[in-house]
């Protein structure tokens, strides 16, 4: 089981949940699962073409997935995928 941790800004698009549990073997699969449950939430993270949006970062084991294997980063049971979008508020 993988835990997707959603930022405050995306929770309203996922039924208010802070965390979504999915079965997935990679970041890409986890986001596909998220998309099946909450298509709009996925669309805030990935473009329709499937690229991570430039104002969003994804972290696995406290490191940017770009420092792992990008969307192909392998997830193991118990891992969490943290979604960090850009916010500008001050």
């Amino acid at each position: 089981m993988i835990k997707i941790e959603l930022p405050d800004a995306l929770r309203s698009l996922a039924g208010g949940a802070r965390e979504i549990a999915v079965e997935a073997g990679s970041v890409s699969e986890a986001l596909d699962e998220l998309g099946r449950l909450y298509p709009e939430a996925r669309l805030r993270i990935l473009t329709r073409g499937g690229q991570v949006r430039p104002h969003v970062n994804l972290f696995v084991r406290e490191r940017d997935i770009r420092a792992h294997d990008g969307l192909n980063t392998v997830l193991e049971d118990g891992d969490s995928l943290l979604v960090v979008p850009s916010v500008a508020g001050g």
Binding site: A9, R44, R53, P54, H55, V56, N57, P85, S86, V87, A88, G89, G90
Partner: peptide
């Protein structure tokens, strides 16, 4: 970290979003 800003619709400022 964030190579480009988001679309304005995705990015409410503090005054709109509440804090």
């Amino acid at each position: 970290l964030f190579s480009e800003p988001p679309d304005p619709e995705f990015a409410p400022s503090c005054s709109e979003a509440g804090v």
